[in-house]
Simulated assay, not measured.
Amino acid sequence: MTLEHVSVAVVVAELVIMLLARFGTERRHWRHYKRDEAAPHRRDNVRLGPGLVYSVAALALVAIAVFSGIDFEWSIGTLSMLGVLGILVPGYAANSVMLLSTRGHRKPLKGWQEMLAYILAALGGAAAVAFI
C-alpha cells in the first residue's frame, strides 16, 4: 500500500466522520422542529471547531512537508489544495469527532476523546502531503 492509498483512505474516513456528525446534528434539528424538543446548540455546526485543531493540522502538514523534503510548485492551486485537504478537512473532521463524542451536549470531553480528535487532525494534515 503506497502513501497515496493511505492518504485517500484518511480523507475518505474524515469525510465519513464529518457526514455522521452532520446527520446527528440534523437529527437534533428535526426533532426540535417536529416535536418542540430542546433547541439545537449553536456549536452543532461542524465548521465551528476550536482553532487548536486547525493549528495541529497545519503544523503536521508543514512538519511532514519539511522533513520529507518534498519540492512542490508554489501555485495557487497547490496551496489551495493543501489548505483544503491539509487544514480544513482535518479540522472539520476533528471537530466532528468532538461533536460525536458529546452527542451535542455541553458536557466536557474526556481526555481520550479530545486526544483522538487531535490525532485525527494531525493525521489528516500529514496525509495531505501525499497529494502534492
Rank of each mutant, 00 (worst) to 15 (best):
N95D: 05
L20C: 09
A9P: 15
V97H: 00
V12Y: 01
Y33V: 15
V66S: 07
S68N: 15
Y118H: 14
V62E: 00
D44F: 02
A128M: 09
H32W: 13
V12A: 15
G69S: 13
V97I: 15
P108E: 14
S96I: 01
R28E: 03
T78D: 04
Y54H: 12
I87N: 02
M18P: 08
V8S: 11
H32G: 05
Q113N: 09
L99F: 05
A39K: 04
M18F: 04
T102Q: 10
A127E: 03
A60V: 00
L109V: 02
A126H: 01
R27A: 14
Y92A: 09
G83L: 03
R35V: 08
V10E: 07
M81D: 10
Y54F: 15
F67M: 14
A63L: 13
V53M: 09
I132L: 06
V8H: 08
E114F: 00
A122L: 06
A58W: 01
R43T: 14
R43S: 14
G111R: 13
G104P: 01
V6N: 11
A93L: 01
A93P: 01
L20H: 00
D71H: 15
L48C: 05
A121S: 08
A60K: 06
V8Y: 12
V11T: 12
Q113S: 14
H41V: 10
I64L: 08
F23H: 10
T102H: 04
D36K: 14
H29K: 09
V10N: 10
P40D: 06
P40F: 01
A65C: 07
R47H: 10
V46S: 04
F23D: 05
V10M: 08
P108V: 02
H105E: 13
R106C: 08
L59Y: 03
M98L: 08
E4P: 00
A117C: 10
L48T: 14
V84D: 12
R106V: 10
P108C: 11
A94C: 08
T2Y: 12
G91D: 05
P40Q: 09
Y33H: 12
S101G: 02
R22V: 06
M115W: 07
F131L: 14
I119E: 07
E14M: 11
R27L: 13
V84M: 10
M1C: 12
L85R: 03
S75N: 13
V16S: 07
I64E: 04
R22S: 11
V6Y: 07
I64C: 04
M1K: 04
I64Q: 04
G83E: 04
T2Q: 03
Y92K: 12
A94E: 00
M18T: 05
K34W: 12
I76D: 06
V62R: 05
T78G: 03
V97P: 00
I76H: 11
G124W: 11
A130Y: 08
S80R: 09
P90T: 15
V62T: 05
F67K: 15
L82G: 11
L79S: 14
T25A: 13
D36L: 10
G51I: 15
L20G: 05
R103S: 08
W30Q: 07
